Structure formats: structure tokens, C-alpha cells
Amino acid sequence: MYRKGEASHQALPLPDRVQLDETEAEAAALRFLAFMKRRHSVRDYSSRAVPKSVIAACIAAAGTVPSGANHQP
């Protein structure tokens, strides 16, 4: 927990961090933009079952995001 005047930080190494060159980064950004332009909100839900493995993967992905004020418990 942060207390005024007692902040400390030690960065963790990120061995799996992806580093793209400028051309690759631009191409990846344009692909992501094209993907995001295709998404939309729909409030008509499918009756098709979602596999538990997909739900588990989504929960695992959600668990990797920072918490409020980046204070992971």
C-alpha cells in the first residue's frame, strides 16, 4: 500500500515482452484497428453454450489486469 513519502518500486523483468520493429508495429496496429472497426455491441444473446475452457481462459485473462491504483492484492 502506498503511504506518502514511502513509495518504492522495483520493476519486474518481462522475458516474454514482444518488441516489434516500426514496420511490424504499424502493421499490427492497423490490423487491430480493422478488427476494432468490425466489433459492435449486440443485446441479442445466443442460446449456444460456451465451453468451460473458453470461460476459464477469459477469467485468467481478466486476472492479469492491474487493479485500482495498480495495487494488486
Rank of each mutant, 00 (worst) to 15 (best):
Q72Y: 10
S8Y: 03
V42P: 00
A7F: 13
Q10C: 13
R3E: 08
T23Y: 14
A49N: 06
I59V: 15
R17K: 14
L20E: 00
F32M: 15
R38I: 05
Y2S: 14
E26D: 14
L33R: 11
G63M: 01
R3T: 08
R48Q: 10
Y45F: 10
I55V: 07
R43I: 06
N70T: 09
P66N: 05
Q10D: 11
A57N: 05
N70W: 10
S41M: 13
C58Y: 15
G63A: 02
A25G: 08
A49P: 01
Y45D: 03
S41F: 11
Q19V: 05
G5M: 00
A60P: 02
Q19G: 12
S47T: 11
R39T: 12
Q10H: 14
R17W: 04
F35V: 05
Y45R: 05
A57F: 04
G68M: 14
P15S: 01
M36G: 07
V50S: 02
H71D: 14
I59Q: 13
A29T: 08
P15N: 00
K52T: 12
D44G: 03
D21N: 02
A11C: 10
R38Q: 12
A11Q: 13
E22Y: 08
P15C: 01
D44K: 09
V42S: 10
F35Y: 14
S53L: 06
R38M: 10
R39N: 09
K52M: 07
P13E: 01
L20V: 03
E6S: 06
